[in-house]
Design a protein around this nucleic acid. Sequence first.
DNA 1: AAGACGAAAGTGGTTGA
DNA 2: TCAACAACTTTCGTCTT
Length: 322
Amino acid sequence: MAGKKSVEEKHASHHECPPDQIYFDPVRGEKICLLTGEVIEEQVIDTGPDWRAYNQEESERRSRVGVPLTYTMHDLGVSAIVDYKNRDAAGRRLTGRKRLDAIKIRKWQSRSKVQTSIDRNLQQAMQELDKLAKQLGVPRHVQEEAAKIYHMAVNKGLVRGRSIESVIAASLYAACRIHKLPHMLDEIAQKVRGSRREIARCYRLIVRDLNLRVPVIDSKTFVARIAGALGLPDEAIVQASKFLEIAKNRGLTAGKDPGGLAAAAVYLAALMLGIKKTQKEVAKIAGVTEVTVRNRYKELAHELHISIDIEDDSSRKKKAEA
DNA sequence: AAGACGAAAGTGGTTGA
DNA sequence: TCAACAACTTTCGTCTT
């Protein structure tokens, strides 16, 4: 169990630090003495080796530790780098006390950097993940999965050079895929600053480099969602799923956008149940275009010989009219 | 007037040299 | 890194209801 990273023993009886020499790092939640660089008070749990113990207790603790959302700048507190010239902003030489201060700050700076760059990253990432997961209404266990994926990515150094947000978004997307949640990449991309392209790139990278086994998303996953949004009866869901099952067995679905397939199946199912939904309507919900729905629908109808039914229907009408 | 249909050109991503 | 390629989108004209 990841206990509180115990403040080193020597600090247990640390000297009293003048209040104006205490620096509070809002990201890490630590109070640091500027004179010595020592951590005076630490409120951050250890996110190190035991991080993967995803039990109730830990997740609660982690969420309690959450830093206010306003602190979204990951480099808050260290972005001002103290260089080694011992000169102030105006270029004057620093003297006496100030020079000492600069040395102390530098010391703390370098120390904190090596010790906490990963922690810091994770802290912010988890925040980001929390926000995103809430927006999408992703269940807890999937969020945990995403966290796990992100951690692996960090450990493999995949985050370097990429934005945390993009990698988090990609992790969450991967987690959704693994748990068969019908969240589409575009949907996630909308909630995030990074471009869809960037997130997709991160996603591929993560899947490849972490050897994640992400099952090919089953178009049936989208059926219930689309049908629900259209207010169709359960019957339509059952019917559409059947269509997709057959289509899959005949190898019609390979390489096709599952969203488009699902949309076409739902459209077709609705049609057969005598419910008229426009292609445009279905397409919009599925996140594809009318044309794609049309193409998939045509293929489905043709290959499943449903065309016969529909042709019969329409030809009957024609005959009746004639 | 609106939906369905299809052709043709354009777009973004994957793959393989 | 570049070109070929497949899937999808956009756009637009035509037909049907």
